[in-house]
Design a protein around this nucleic acid. Structure first.
Lengths: 227, 227
DNA sequence: CGCCCCCTTGAGCCGTGTCAACTAATGTGG
DNA sequence: CCACATTAGTTGACACGGCTCAAGGGGGCG
């Protein structure tokens, strides 16, 4: 049996329906977090899950030796805190990349539980895909897959698919993609040289989404050497 | 906040308590599968989860271009089929590596749901760790981490920690660790040359678990080049 | 203005994938 | 039971991608 996966969907876990309208204004009663402020501390216990309303978050783990690993990015629509289905102890930290707001999901009713379960399931599939991506695909394909994915995520939320601002810095993005920052920088440069996009640090404009999608799609070939 | 993870525990998802005694004889009423026989086909729908009683399984995904990815190995005590918590459609296939038996969990009661949820949670953490391992650690550290983990798993189930038979072939193990079979072979050779183990294909004997654990533990350093 | 941090660019090295050849193990049919 | 075919595992040679180290811009903020 063959699974036909699109190159790299669902990296952004917006399992909830798009909330494009309400994302502009920040609803009262929600918790507001500023850049670098933590929503969740690894090892701490949470009692309620959160729904991301606006902004963007990064989840990560720190290891004993000091280096940290970026686990994922979370945009409006994402649900955080599936650990409440178990003991509530979080294994990773979640920090705001920019001024952001979240809605606390107070009642752990049937719908919420299902939402969290779907969230976990998506997470497993995302990690599997990421593993496969890092094993088989070169820098450019990984970067292309990420950009296509982010582009789609933007589109689903009602924003432009071809022009957007990345909420995370190069270091974090490199960490997420399993690359050194220098390598990521060179990846951007190659895509820019080929006229596929323009990227002034965080402002990205896709000039040829077709070719970008192609680069990401050839991904699963043995395209580690031939991009 | 720093998470203190042991080098690589829980790769083998024996969330259920060890069933060492009952593993010897195969209880009646359970489903028996022979080598290469599938328990779950990707894309198919399952209605009940399974508990592995004896033998060993491999879960994997096939991609369009033909190459497949090994997702995990499952020994007695593992639970398979968390997808029943959602729509029941499986995203990966599960095949027996040897003559094996499973027990179908008929009632989806509270305990079973919790077991499956824990299973998913462990899976997420395992995949995160694997990602980190593959990004930061060289061949020998990855192999060492796997062997330590398998050794511990054997120990928990009441078998020898220092001498065991790996149920999977080199190709599958290489695929799981994200290595080429040749590279894995060289990894075994280096560990053998250093007097840390003996390995005649599947029969592994750990001569110096201490040093092996050390190699796996130095893992998270920037030990990609210096093992 | 000047400091700091982030990003970029260059040079060189090392680990691992690939290709190819050889051996060992397994299975098959006569 | 042996000869053969087939697959799995090992070993060697080589090339290449990405990491590391080091230095050079560029933008934000005090």
């Amino acid at each position: 049996m063959t699974i036909h996966t699109q190159p790299h969907s669902h990296v952004f876990t917006d399992s909830y329906l798009p909330v494009a309208g309400s994302a502009a204004g920040i609803p009262s009663g929600n918790r507001i977090l500023r850049r670098h402020e933590h929503l969740i501390h690894a090892g701490a216990r949470i009692r309620h899950p959160y729904l991301v309303i606006s902004g963007a978050f990064k989840s990560y783990v720190n290891y004993e030796n000091g280096d940290s690993q970026v686990l994922g990015f979370h945009v409006p629509g994402s649900v955080l805190g599936y650990e409440v289905l178990l003991d509530g102890y979080c294994s990773c930290s979640v920090v705001a990349l920019d001024t952001s707001s979240v809605k606390r999901l107070d009642s752990l009713d049937e719908d919420t539980r299902r939402l969290l379960t779907e969230n976990m399931c998506n997470e497993i599939q995302r990690l599997s895909r990421q593993l496969h991506l890092e094993r088989k695909c070169c820098t450019d394909a990984r970067l292309a897959a990420f950009l296509i994915d982010y582009s789609d995520s933007q589109g689903r939320r009602g924003y432009s698919r071809n022009e957007f601002i990345l909420p995370m810095g190069r270091r974090d993005l490199a960490g997420y993609l399993g690359l050194a920052p220098e390598t990521l920088s060179r990846g951007f440069r190659r895509l820019r040289d080929r006229g596929i996009l323009t990227a002034s640090t965080n402002h990205v404009k896709l000039l040829s989404p077709e070719r970008l999608r192609n680069i990401a799609g050839v991904a699963s070939d043995r395209a580690r050497q031939r991009c």
